[in-house]
Amino acid sequence: MLRKSATAWMVAAAVLTALAATAAAQPLGFQAVPRDAFPVFDDPKMLSAAEAEKQGVIFDRDVIIGVAHNGEAKAYPITIMGVHELGNDTIGGVPIAVSW
């Protein structure tokens, strides 16, 4: 009875090791989470300052990443960037990638 379960554990360990080696290996680094696990945003519909505050999306003490270019300004709250991690947007007509 004991011998059978020991063999089962050894087989399981070997299979898992093989799986881990193939699944995790990458040209660089390793696959920490599935691809596209983070919901990257694309050309998001933005809120005005007043709307954002009204919706409770943002408060005075919140930390934001701000970008201003060609007369346009946008704020990306780091709470929300924590959900997306990455997004595609434009600022003042210039396409940008926003990352956290």
Partner: peptide, 25 residues
């Protein structure tokens, strides 16, 4: 692209027409 990490209060004061990324806090 240059950017600034700051508080919403500070950013809003300087860029009153700024837009904000929506989402859940």
């Amino acid at each position: 692209m240059p950017s600034t990490v700051t508080s919403w209060a500070n950013w809003k004061k300087n860029y009153p027409l700024t837009q904000v990324l929506p989402g859940y806090r």
